[in-house]
Computed example of a mutant assay.
Amino acid sequence: MSDTGSVRLVAWVHGHVQGVGFRWWTRSRALELGLTGYARNTADRRVHVVAEGPRDRCEQLLALLRSGDTPGRVTLVVQDWGPAQGGLVGFDER
């Protein structure tokens, strides 16, 4: 049985993920999954992803981030789960 309750996924993506279209790719996958949130570059060269929606769809996005089929080269994805906080519209690149 899959859990489809609304959650917030926060993921920190490490590797060569800036300047390679990674945020655009993440936004496209998130929109295909019907998620809201954003992907933004950080000063330490990671990408910070926040996504809200059904748990199973957030898990799908997390699996895609770890798939090896992303732009650039992902070496590590650290995730945190919490309740959805709302207030997000669409999925932005920041």
Rank of each mutant, 00 (worst) to 15 (best):
residue 4 T to V: 11
residue 5 G to R: 14
residue 5 G to D: 14
residue 6 S to D: 14
residue 6 S to A: 10
residue 7 V to R: 12
residue 7 V to C: 07
residue 7 V to P: 00
residue 8 R to V: 03
residue 8 R to A: 06
residue 8 R to T: 08
residue 10 V to W: 00
residue 10 V to P: 00
residue 11 A to S: 10
residue 11 A to H: 03
residue 12 W to S: 12
residue 12 W to G: 05
residue 12 W to Y: 10
residue 13 V to M: 00
residue 13 V to W: 01
residue 13 V to N: 00
residue 13 V to F: 01
residue 15 G to S: 03
residue 15 G to V: 04
residue 17 V to F: 03
residue 17 V to M: 05
residue 18 Q to Y: 09
residue 20 V to E: 03
residue 22 F to A: 00
residue 24 W to E: 10
residue 25 W to G: 02
residue 26 T to Y: 04
residue 27 R to F: 08
residue 27 R to N: 03
residue 28 S to N: 12
residue 28 S to F: 13
residue 30 A to G: 05
residue 30 A to D: 02
residue 30 A to F: 08
residue 30 A to K: 03
residue 32 E to W: 11
residue 32 E to I: 06
residue 33 L to K: 00
residue 33 L to Y: 00
residue 34 G to E: 03
residue 34 G to T: 01
residue 35 L to G: 04
residue 35 L to E: 04
residue 36 T to P: 07
residue 36 T to Y: 05
residue 37 G to S: 11
residue 37 G to L: 09
residue 38 Y to G: 08
residue 39 A to L: 03
residue 40 R to V: 15
residue 43 A to Y: 11
residue 43 A to V: 13
residue 43 A to N: 12
residue 43 A to H: 13
residue 46 R to S: 02
residue 46 R to I: 01
residue 48 H to I: 03
residue 49 V to D: 06
residue 50 V to A: 09
residue 51 A to W: 02
residue 52 E to Y: 09
residue 54 P to D: 15
residue 54 P to Q: 15
residue 55 R to C: 11
residue 55 R to A: 14
residue 55 R to F: 07
residue 56 D to S: 15
residue 57 R to N: 10
residue 58 C to I: 03
residue 58 C to M: 06
residue 58 C to F: 07
residue 59 E to Y: 09
residue 61 L to W: 05
residue 61 L to V: 09
residue 62 L to H: 10
residue 64 L to A: 12
residue 64 L to H: 14
residue 67 S to A: 11
residue 67 S to C: 07
residue 67 S to I: 11
residue 67 S to P: 00
residue 68 G to E: 11
residue 68 G to Y: 10
residue 68 G to I: 12
residue 70 T to G: 00
residue 70 T to W: 08
residue 71 P to W: 07
residue 72 G to K: 09
residue 72 G to N: 04
residue 73 R to E: 15
residue 74 V to H: 04
residue 74 V to W: 10
residue 76 L to G: 02
residue 76 L to Y: 06
residue 81 W to C: 08
residue 81 W to G: 06
residue 82 G to P: 00
residue 82 G to Q: 08
residue 83 P to T: 14
residue 86 G to H: 06
residue 86 G to L: 02
residue 86 G to V: 01
residue 86 G to M: 08
residue 86 G to K: 05
residue 86 G to E: 04
residue 88 L to N: 09
residue 88 L to I: 02
residue 88 L to Y: 14
residue 88 L to M: 14
residue 90 G to K: 07
residue 91 F to I: 04
residue 93 E to I: 12
residue 94 R to I: 12
residue 94 R to K: 13
residue 94 R to F: 13
